[in-house]
Design a binder for these strands. Structure first.
Lengths: 102, 102
DNA sequence: CATACACATAGAAAAATGTCAATATGTTTT
DNA sequence: AAAACATATTGACATTTTTCTATGTGTATG
């Protein structure tokens, strides 16, 4: 997959703000439109819109437009990529034995 | 485990900065002291010290003091907690069927 | 014991991020 | 077509984060 350092920061920025973490908790119950998300968060509409953009940019959330509504949900594929990325970046190389290989 | 939103942000802040991601890449080759990390990064010594504090606070990195040196390494336990946390927060509830349970 | 070394902390400046009010855009309804 | 609605964008401000220089702390060494 070979993500750049920058791309990795974009993925995990989604989880660096308490309100965005809370949005994940709400979306765990299923797809929801922005106006319903707004009801459960103490945020202005533009602020929520900003957070949803950060979440969609990370790939962990996807938006689906339906008329004037935007429906947001957690992306299973995005989540898998993030988990794989986290595992990769925290894995320690075993191939460092000096006698057999580089 | 039941981590708070705040605790989750602390974990993933470790991966929200490109320099810190790069530090993970370097530590993947094994434990390293701060002065050697410094050689591979274009950062001042206090800035590196700051990033190492963020990383240790997240639990993904651990420091081991030996004389005047601090040796840093990736924490396998911390990584496991982070992966579990990421899986949990991105999991979608299945128990939402209206006919059988709440 | 004085000096050098490795790292941490304090304080300040700069950059990035979070927030809101106001406004714009696009869609539906009347 | 006008009005109402849902969401996005803009611009301003406050907070947080990143970064540095200067300095402090603890440890080893000459």
């Amino acid at each position: 997959m070979e993500l750049s350092n920058k791309q990795i920061t974009v993925i995990f920025k989604s989880l660096c703000d308490e309100n965005r973490v809370q949005i994940f908790r709400i979306l765990q119950n299923g797809e929801l439109c922005a106006c319903h998300l707004l009801e459960e968060l103490h945020l202005s509409q533009p602020t929520l819109s900003h957070h949803m953009k950060v979440l969609c940019d990370s790939g962990l959330v996807v938006g689906r437009k339906e008329g004037k509504w935007m429906h947001y949900s957690i992306s299973a594929e995005g989540a898998k990529i993030a988990v794989d990325c986290l595992k990769e970046i925290t894995a320690v190389n075993e191939s460092e034995c000096k006698c057999c290989n580089k």
